[in-house]
C-alpha cells in the first residue's frame, strides 16, 4: 500500500508541468523514505531527478518499494482537473496497475478521484557522483528564466563563463550577439532576490539553450535556482521545492569536435 497526501496540491501540478516536456515517461520510485524519479530525455542529453521526502507530505505511507511507470502527459491531464487549492492524495495498492489521485477542495465540499493507468518502463539509472563544483551560482529563478528565454531568441547555444567578475551568458545567431553578465549581489534584503556566486576556479562551458530554457519551467516551484558548473562536466540546475524536496536537472555540455 502506498499513500501520500499533500495539502498544497498545486505543488504536484507545477512539478509535472516542469517535467512533462522534457521527459515523456518515467518511474516514480516509492519507498518508506519518499518518492523519487530519475528520467532522461529521449536523446539522453539531459536528466531530471526528483526527490520528494516522506516527511514533506502531510501524510505518507509506503509498505513496500514500488516503481510506478508514469506517462507525464497523461498525469498532467489528470492533475489539470485538480483545483489549485485542492489537497491531493496519491494512492496505489501493492503491484497495482493504476495510481489513484484523489482531489479534495479546501472546504471538503468536492471530492473527486481519477485512476491513472501505470506503464511498465525499463529505465536506465545513472549514478550521479557527489562532487565539488568549480562554480556555484544561486540566483532568483525568475532571473534565470529571463536570461535563458531572452538568449533563446538570439541563438541556439550559450557559453556560460564564471570568473571573479561574475557569471556571463553569451550567445550569437543570425540576429547578432548577446552577452548578459550577473554580478554577486547580496544587497537585496530578501534572500530570494540575491545573487550569490561561489567561485573556486574560473570555468566556461557551452550548452544547448533549448534545454536550459526547458528547465526554467520549474520557476513557479522555487524563488531561487542554483547552477553548478565544473569544466567538462554536465551543468547541474537545482530548484528546492520548499520542505518537500527538490528537482534537479543535468545537461551534458557541447564539446569541441
Amino acid at each position: 500500500m502506498f499513500e501520500a497526501r499533500i495539502t498544497q496540491g498545486s505543488v504536484l501540478k507545477k512539478l509535472v508541468e516542469a517535467l512533462k516536456e522534457l521527459v515523456t515517461e518515467g518511474n516514480f520510485d516509492v519507498s518508506s523514505t519518499g518518492l523519487t524519479l530519475q528520467a532522461m530525455d529521449s536523446s539522453h542529453v539531459c536528466l531530471v531527478s526528483l526527490t520528494l521526502r516522506d516527511d514533506g507530505f502531510d501524510h505518507y505511507r509506503c509498505d513496500r518499494n514500488m516503481a510506478m511507470g508514469i506517462h507525464f502527459g497523461n498525469l498532467s491531464k489528470i492533475l489539470k482537473c485538480a483545483g489549485n487549492e485542492d489537497t491531493i492524495t496519491l494512492k496505489a495498492e501493492d503491484n497495482a496497475d493504476t495510481l489513484t489521485l484523489m482531489f479534495e477542495s479546501a472546504n471538503q465540499d468536492r471530492i473527486s478521484d481519477f485512476d491513472l493507468k501505470l506503464m511498465s518502463i525499463e529505465s536506465e539509472h545513472l549514478g550521479i557522483p557527489d562532487q565539488d563544483y568549480s562554480a556555484e551560482i544561486k540566483m532568483p529563478s525568475a532571473e534565470y528564466q529571463r536570461i535563458v528565454r531572452d538568449l533563446t531568441s538570439i541563438g541556439d547555444t550559450v557559453l556560460i563563463s564564471a570568473t571573479k567578475e561574475g557569471i556571463k551568458f553569451s550567445t550569437s545567431g543570425d540576429v547578432g550577439t548577446a552577452n548578459i553578465t550577473l554580478r554577486h549581489n547580496t544587497t537585496p534584503e530578501k534572500p530570494e532576490e540575491q545573487t550569490i556566486i561561489d567561485l573556486k576556479e574560473p570555468v566556461a562551458l557551452t550548452f544547448a539553450l533549448r534545454y536550459l530554457n526547458n528547465f526554467s519551467k520549474a520557476t513557479p516551484l522555487a524563488p531561487q535556482v542554483k547552477l553548478s558548473l565544473t569544466k567538462d562536466l554536465p551543468i547541474f540546475v537545482e530548484y528546492q521545492v520548499g520542505d518537500l524536496g527538490n528537482v534537479r536537472f543535468f545537461l551534458a555540455p557541447k564539446i569541441d569536435d
Binding site: 539522453h44 545513472l126 549514478g127 554536465p234 551534458a252 564539446i255 569541441d256
Partner: peptide
C-alpha cells in the same frame, strides 16, 4: 561543437 550525452559522464547503475 557536438552535443555530448549524459551517459558519457555518469555511469549506469
Amino acid at each position: 561543437m557536438q552535443q555530448g550525452t549524459l551517459t558519457a559522464f555518469f555511469p549506469s547503475t
